[in-house]
């Protein structure tokens, strides 16, 4: 039954224009970002040392990590997944299409599980699109700046691991969106609640708590977004994006990467469990 449901969810997911628009958006914005940084780098007003630093940021292999960072949880990737998950989960309440598998005797838990498992594909597609475009763009920049590409500098395993971590970092927000969409049964509500949480709560609470220092500041590090950030910082993605910015002084390396992996998994399982429990009890005809 799970296999059949996964096939059905795949048909529904691939049929959505939103998925392909989002992937195109990641590609276009990555290209634009590289173009913009190159433009800044070429300005004569920028000191030589900074120009060299920017150039190193965009060339292989670090250039790919800039692209991956753009697709991570608290950047474009997080936002796009919140939109996609909200649509995938909430719209089916509007269409009453959850009734189709239920009427066919498919257990409700299988429906929830298959839907979330299939949503892992867009997360991976998003990260691998960022990897592909990042590779192309930084290869072009490397050729322009250095005149050649030193393939030995590219660590494929490291890049693949960074890509998978980028996708993994999206999980807690995906599961949170999934849960809110099930609880509210509304696209607008789930979009606004989760976007509000990500940009207001996750954006403001950690810097505020860090002012208190000690245990209080450590609590902030346990929030879903901060755990994902800690994991990304272990791969150097967050550090790349924060060069030259006034990033919040939260100790991203305050959480061990292994603990961050477990924490993200725990949040994902908890949010999904709440969604599954609620879905079990819902009246699907309303």
């Amino acid at each position: 039954m799970l296999r059949s449901m996964l096939q059905i969810e795949r048909t529904k997911l691939y049929g959505r224009k939103t998925l392909w628009i989002e992937l195109a958006l990641v590609a276009v914005i990555t290209v634009l970002l590289f173009g913009l940084i190159l433009l800044v780098q070429s300005l004569e007003e920028v000191p030589k040392a900074e120009r060299e630093m920017i150039a190193s940021l965009l060339t292989l292999p670090d250039g790919v990590k800039v692209s991956l960072a753009l697709s991570s949880n608290q950047m474009l990737g997080g936002l796009l997944m919140i939109v996609l998950v909200s649509m995938v989960v909430a719209q089916e309440y509007t269409w009453q299409s959850y009734t189709l598998p239920v009427r066919a005797g498919i257990p409700r838990l299988t429906i929830v599980l298959s839907k979330f498992l299939m949503l892992l594909i867009p997360a991976l597609l998003l990260a691998f699109t960022a990897l592909g475009i990042g590779l192309i763009m930084s290869a072009l920049v490397t050729l322009t700046v250095e005149g050649q590409i030193d393939v030995s500098q590219i660590n494929i395993v490291d890049l693949l691991l960074s890509t998978l971590i980028t996708a993994y970092s999206l999980l807690p927000y995906m599961a949170l969106t999934f849960m809110i969409a099930v609880l509210t049964r509304s696209l607008a509500a789930s979009l606004s609640v989760v976007a509000g949480y990500v940009f207001l709560v996750e954006g403001l609470v950690p810097p505020l708590l860090s002012l208190f220092g000690g245990t209080v500041a450590q609590i902030a590090l346990l929030m879903p977004g901060q755990l994902a950030n800690a994991l990304l910082s272990a791969t150097g993605q967050m550090n790349n994006m924060q060069i030259g910015t006034d990033a919040a002084p939260v100790a991203l390396d305050g959480v061990d990467p292994a603990a961050a992996v477990i924490g993200i998994a725990a949040y994902t399982v908890i949010f999904l469990a709440v969604a599954a429990l609620r879905f079990q009890k819902q009246d699907l005809t309303a």
Binding site: T11, K12, G15, E92, W95, Q96, S97, T99, R103, T285
Partner: peptide, 13 residues
């Protein structure tokens, strides 16, 4: 089964 005022369908399929 055919259920509801209209058949349950996904509009983009």
């Amino acid at each position: 089964s055919l259920f509801g005022a209209q058949a349950t369908l996904i509009p983009y399929l």
